[in-house]
Amino acid sequence: MSSDRHLRAVDDSYHAPDGVTLGTSGTGEVITPRGLVRAANLDSLLTQAARGSGAAFEQIYDNISGAVYGTALRVVRDPQLAEDVAQEALVEVWRTAARFRPDAGSARAWILTIAHRRAVDRVRSEQAHTTRLRHHGKPDDKQAPTDNVVDTMFAEWEAARVRAGLAELTELQREAIILAYYKGYTHREVSEALDIPLGTAKARLRDGLMKLRDMWEVAR
């Protein structure tokens, strides 16, 4: 991985020493730009949890509950609802841990995909789509900055990376991803909201994601 290239994607206001480590968390754990240490650890913890280890699952919780809850909160917006969604998602992680395949992606991606889908399902069942479309219309990327950031350095680094990454996309790519990922729009709703053909909506989602992937080099 090229750390130079990663750092270019980070917000200008953010400086990291030599791009090797960005700092240490409160517990002294070294945080690499990509949280690699954490990620590898999470894979093995999830494998242990699949075999019934509650202790491993508690470590998984400590590692990723902030991202699970934060993802849910961003999508459903309501803290109470987000807590319910996070609970459902984390219990599902425990229940289906044996289906995690380390060779098919990271544990982090596996867990956060579960959390995101749960959140999107909740949004879709809570709200009539038409109402949602009428009320929100065009995407609003401005989100109040959250306090209580867990694992501050890492989350800030990720947030900066996301801001910088999204800024590199075309407007359609960016808006499509924001509507779909953060607001739970289906691709049909995305095409309606942006007034573009369905095929274009699908293609912009794919192109945008691939551009982010290439920028972030997250491919495994």
């Binding site: 809850y69 993802t71 959250t146 989350a155 996301v162």
Partner: peptide
């Protein structure tokens, strides 16, 4: 892995 980054950035 890309959407995992999007999710991780929301951590609170």
């Amino acid at each position: 892995e890309v959407t995992a980054v999007l999710g991780e950035a929301e951590a609170v």
